[in-house]
Amino acid sequence: MDTKKETFVSFIVGLVFGFGLLLSGMANPEKVLGFLDLAGDWDPSLALVMAGAIAIGLVAFTIAGKRSYTLLGKEMNLPSGQHIDRRLVVGSLTFGAGWGLAGFCPGPALVAVGAGEIKAIVFVVAMIAGMTIFEFIERARNRA
């Protein structure tokens, strides 16, 4: 079980993440599509979002990679997969196609739901349906 401290950390971190998405323009699908539209009037802003995030992330994950325990004393829970397989590539291509259709990826869509956008709510419901379909397919496959 999570300690109260960890739950509080999660909430604050989610909040900061949300502010970051809003301020950066990631939560605005038109801005995202302006970045993905290389052949139109290209808006390079989102490359800087990635650069800013990764600059901080590189330091944090280098430190995290050297530790077995978190600063709150729990075990680190980092992904261990090394496989580059068809699932990874086909899944990511599918995700990218959906991203390009509406300009929403999961985080920004949730933030837009918080802002009360009806279309974002429709998107998130469809996204959760997609995740549920994936789960059904996985279970059916594991049974077979």
Binding site: P79, G81, R87, L88, V89, V90, G91, S92, L93, T94, F95, G96, A97, G98, W99, L101, A102, F104, C105, P106, A109, K119, V122, F123, V124, V125, A126, M127, I128, A129, G130, M131, T132, I133, F134, E135
Partner: peptide
């Protein structure tokens, strides 16, 4: 929006 949401949901889980 609906098609996009379905693709994003499926794709992100499939591609982890």
């Amino acid at each position: 929006i609906i098609v996009a949401g379905l693709l994003v949901g499926l794709g992100t889980r499939y591609g982890s």
